[in-house]
Simulated assay, not measured.
Amino acid sequence: MYTRLLLPLIPLLFIGAVQADVCTNATTQGDMNQCAAQETKTADKELNSLYKQITARLKDNAEAKQLLVKAQRAWIDFRDAECSFSASGVEGGSVYPMIQNDCITALTKARVEAFKTYLNCEEGDLSCPVPGA
Protein backbone atom coordinates (compact mmCIF):
# COMPACT_ATOMS: atom_id res chain seq x y z
CA MET A 1 0.00 0.00 0.00
CA TYR A 2 2.77 2.47 0.90
CA THR A 3 4.51 1.71 -2.38
CA ARG A 4 1.42 2.76 -4.30
CA LEU A 5 1.32 6.04 -2.39
CA LEU A 6 5.01 6.78 -2.83
CA LEU A 7 5.32 5.74 -6.47
CA PRO A 8 3.97 9.03 -7.86
CA LEU A 9 6.58 10.94 -5.84
CA ILE A 10 9.58 9.24 -7.45
CA PRO A 11 9.75 11.63 -10.45
CA LEU A 12 10.08 14.54 -8.01
CA LEU A 13 13.34 13.07 -6.73
CA PHE A 14 14.74 13.04 -10.25
CA ILE A 15 13.59 16.60 -10.95
CA GLY A 16 15.64 17.83 -7.99
CA ALA A 17 18.68 15.88 -9.17
CA VAL A 18 18.27 17.14 -12.73
CA GLN A 19 17.87 20.74 -11.51
CA ALA A 20 21.08 20.49 -9.47
CA ASP A 21 22.89 19.03 -12.48
CA VAL A 22 21.53 21.77 -14.78
CA CYS A 23 22.80 24.43 -12.39
CA THR A 24 26.20 22.81 -12.00
CA ASN A 25 26.63 22.59 -15.77
CA ALA A 26 24.59 25.63 -16.86
CA THR A 27 25.88 26.98 -20.15
CA THR A 28 22.94 28.96 -21.50
CA GLN A 29 21.92 32.32 -20.11
CA GLY A 30 18.40 31.03 -19.62
CA ASP A 31 19.65 28.16 -17.46
CA MET A 32 21.92 30.48 -15.47
CA ASN A 33 19.02 32.90 -14.92
CA GLN A 34 16.80 30.05 -13.77
CA CYS A 35 19.44 28.75 -11.37
CA ALA A 36 20.05 32.23 -9.94
CA ALA A 37 16.30 32.60 -9.37
CA GLN A 38 16.23 29.23 -7.60
CA GLU A 39 19.10 30.28 -5.32
CA THR A 40 17.21 33.46 -4.47
CA LYS A 41 14.10 31.45 -3.65
CA THR A 42 16.08 29.10 -1.40
CA ALA A 43 17.74 31.97 0.48
CA ASP A 44 14.38 33.72 0.86
CA LYS A 45 12.81 30.58 2.34
CA GLU A 46 15.57 30.40 4.95
CA LEU A 47 15.18 34.09 5.76
CA ASN A 48 11.42 33.71 6.18
CA SER A 49 11.89 30.73 8.49
CA LEU A 50 14.29 32.66 10.71
CA TYR A 51 12.01 35.72 10.68
CA LYS A 52 9.15 33.57 11.95
CA GLN A 53 11.37 32.21 14.72
CA ILE A 54 12.32 35.72 15.79
CA THR A 55 8.74 36.99 15.75
CA ALA A 56 7.70 33.99 17.83
CA ARG A 57 10.29 34.91 20.45
CA LEU A 58 9.04 38.49 20.43
CA LYS A 59 5.40 37.50 20.98
CA ASP A 60 5.40 39.05 24.45
CA ASN A 61 7.06 42.29 23.32
CA ALA A 62 4.77 44.08 20.85
CA GLU A 63 7.06 47.11 20.62
CA ALA A 64 10.14 45.08 19.69
CA LYS A 65 8.10 43.03 17.24
CA GLN A 66 6.88 46.23 15.53
CA LEU A 67 10.47 47.49 15.35
CA LEU A 68 11.49 44.23 13.67
CA VAL A 69 8.66 44.56 11.14
CA LYS A 70 9.71 48.15 10.40
CA ALA A 71 13.37 47.15 10.07
CA GLN A 72 12.55 44.22 7.80
CA ARG A 73 10.40 46.35 5.50
CA ALA A 74 13.17 48.95 5.30
CA TRP A 75 15.72 46.20 4.64
CA ILE A 76 13.59 44.79 1.78
CA ASP A 77 13.28 48.27 0.26
CA PHE A 78 17.06 48.71 0.56
CA ARG A 79 17.79 45.26 -0.89
CA ASP A 80 15.54 45.80 -3.88
CA ALA A 81 16.87 49.30 -4.58
CA GLU A 82 20.50 48.22 -4.14
CA CYS A 83 20.10 45.26 -6.46
CA SER A 84 18.27 47.32 -9.09
CA PHE A 85 21.17 49.75 -9.00
CA SER A 86 23.75 46.96 -9.00
CA ALA A 87 22.21 45.36 -12.08
CA SER A 88 21.42 48.65 -13.86
CA GLY A 89 24.52 48.39 -16.05
CA VAL A 90 23.02 45.38 -17.83
CA GLU A 91 19.36 46.44 -17.74
CA GLY A 92 17.49 45.13 -20.73
CA GLY A 93 20.09 42.45 -21.38
CA SER A 94 19.64 38.72 -21.04
CA VAL A 95 22.07 38.61 -18.09
CA TYR A 96 20.02 41.13 -16.05
CA PRO A 97 17.90 38.55 -14.15
CA MET A 98 21.01 36.62 -13.11
CA ILE A 99 22.88 39.72 -11.94
CA GLN A 100 19.88 41.01 -10.02
CA ASN A 101 19.12 37.62 -8.44
CA ASP A 102 22.76 37.10 -7.48
CA CYS A 103 22.67 40.45 -5.67
CA ILE A 104 19.38 39.62 -3.93
CA THR A 105 20.75 36.25 -2.87
CA ALA A 106 23.97 37.74 -1.48
CA LEU A 107 22.14 40.39 0.55
CA THR A 108 19.55 37.86 1.73
CA LYS A 109 22.29 35.49 2.90
CA ALA A 110 23.86 38.36 4.85
CA ARG A 111 20.49 39.08 6.47
CA VAL A 112 20.14 35.37 7.26
CA GLU A 113 23.43 35.52 9.15
CA ALA A 114 22.24 38.57 11.09
CA PHE A 115 19.04 36.73 12.03
CA LYS A 116 21.03 33.67 13.10
CA THR A 117 23.09 35.93 15.36
CA TYR A 118 19.89 37.30 16.92
CA LEU A 119 18.65 33.78 17.54
CA ASN A 120 21.93 32.67 19.16
CA CYS A 121 22.77 35.55 21.46
CA GLU A 122 24.67 34.77 24.61
CA GLU A 123 22.65 35.06 27.79
CA GLY A 124 23.16 38.47 29.31
CA ASP A 125 24.03 40.13 25.99
CA LEU A 126 22.29 43.46 26.45
CA SER A 127 22.83 44.41 22.80
CA CYS A 128 20.67 41.52 21.62
CA PRO A 129 17.02 42.47 20.96
CA VAL A 130 15.77 38.85 20.78
CA PRO A 131 15.21 36.84 23.95
CA GLY A 132 16.62 33.34 24.22
CA ALA A 133 14.55 30.29 23.41
Rank of each mutant, 00 (worst) to 15 (best):
G30S: 11
G30R: 11
G30Q: 12
D31K: 13
M32T: 09
M32D: 06
N33P: 01
N33L: 08
Q34W: 11
C35S: 06
C35G: 08
A36K: 09
A37Q: 11
A37K: 14
T40R: 13
T40V: 10
K41T: 14
K41P: 10
T42V: 12
A43F: 05
D44Q: 15
D44H: 12
D44C: 04
L47C: 07
L47H: 08
N48C: 05
N48G: 13
S49E: 09
L50C: 05
Y51R: 10
Q53H: 07
Q53V: 15
A56N: 11
A56P: 07
A56W: 00
R57V: 02
L58G: 01
K59R: 15
D60P: 04
D60F: 02
N61A: 07
A62V: 10
A64R: 15
A64G: 07
K65L: 08
L67A: 11
L68P: 07
V69C: 03
V69S: 08
Q72W: 03
W75K: 15
W75C: 14
I76N: 06
I76C: 04
D77W: 05
F78Q: 08
R79G: 04
R79T: 07
D80F: 06
S84M: 09
A87R: 12
A87G: 10
S88Y: 03
G89V: 05
V90E: 10
E91N: 12
E91F: 08
E91Q: 14
V95R: 09
V95K: 10
Y96A: 06
P97T: 10
I99R: 07
I99G: 01
Q100R: 15
Q100M: 14
Q100P: 01
Q100E: 12
N101H: 14
N101E: 12
D102A: 13
D102H: 15
C103P: 06
C103V: 13
I104M: 11
T105H: 05
A106C: 01
A106K: 10
L107W: 06
T108I: 01
A110F: 05
A110E: 09
V112K: 01
V112L: 03
V112N: 03
A114W: 01
F115P: 02
K116F: 03
T117K: 00
T117W: 00
Y118A: 04
Y118S: 03
L119V: 04
L119N: 01
N120L: 00
N120P: 04
N120A: 03
C121D: 00
C121F: 01
E122N: 10
E123S: 15
G124N: 02
G124A: 00
G124H: 02
G124C: 02
D125I: 06
